[in-house]
Amino acid sequence: MKIKHLPIMMAAFVMSFALFAAPAQAQKPKKRTLTISTESGANLFIDGNQVTSPAKIKIDKRAAINVRVEKVGFVTEIRNYDNNGINVIPKTDFIQLTKDEAYENSFVTNLANQDIDIKPSRNTDESWLLLNRIVTGSFDVIAIMDKATGYMATAWSAKAFNSGVVRTRLIIRTTSSNPLEYKAKLVSEIAPPGTSVNSDESFRRWDRVLRTYESVIPDMQSRLAVN
């Protein structure tokens, strides 16, 4: 390499570095004003405090704010605006929500997570056989089945949606042998997206049931009551 070319190469290197570094200096760290708005009917929260949309917010230098938007039937949107002099803080931002797939594929019901009475008019053997047919018609795997004690529990059936993971299981237990009575519980729980079906600590009870299981308990109540 000739020495006379060295200054030219160094200048080119400095210019290239400046071009790559420019985005990191998009803003000087100074107080910014941001106006946030969202769609009608949504609840807007700034750092946990509910405000009216549109909301005009002042963000101090080196400060950050958390924005959360909620609406029934839609996926909750969370955004963080960090005024660190590197991130670009827009003057306005409209937060568009996405429809909640889990909500659209479920219904609210008092059958969720409650003991429901099943009072068969059939004998024990016929009732137990029919229970098996009804349950396996909706659930692929029965995890526990003990005819002697009259206890049955399906494995968790999980389905992933854009708003979270919904898991469902059915538990049936005998509460009386004379007259014959069962308690059926359709357990419905939800957890954040990507959660493993076995991560019990991440799931919470959900007052909705996926439409796939809408008729399970009503079928038991009606079909077991018919001789």
Rank of each mutant, 00 (worst) to 15 (best):
I134S: 02
I134R: 00
I134A: 03
I134E: 02
V135N: 04
V135G: 00
G137A: 10
G137R: 05
S138A: 15
S138C: 05
V141T: 14
V141N: 12
V141Y: 14
V141R: 10
I142D: 08
I144T: 12
I144M: 11
M145I: 09
M145N: 14
K147T: 05
A148H: 02
A148R: 08
T149S: 13
Y151S: 09
M152P: 01
T154Q: 05
A155P: 00
A155H: 06
A155I: 12
W156H: 09
A158P: 03
A158S: 15
K159Q: 15
K159D: 14
A160G: 04
F161Q: 01
F161C: 01
N162P: 04
N162E: 09
N162I: 09
N162K: 02
S163P: 03
S163H: 03
S163L: 03
S163Y: 09
G164M: 08
G164S: 05
G164V: 01
V165M: 08
V166T: 02
T168Y: 06
T168F: 04
R169F: 13
I171Q: 14
I171P: 01
I172L: 14
R173T: 13
T174C: 12
T175M: 06
T175I: 15
S176A: 14
S176I: 06
N178C: 03
N178P: 07
N178I: 12
P179C: 11
E181T: 10
E181P: 02
Y182R: 05
Y182P: 08
K183V: 14
K183L: 15
A184S: 10
A184N: 04
K185C: 14
L186V: 06
L186R: 01
L186T: 06
V187H: 05
S188Q: 06
S188E: 09
I190E: 03
A191F: 14
A191P: 07
A191G: 07
P192A: 09
P192L: 07
P193V: 13
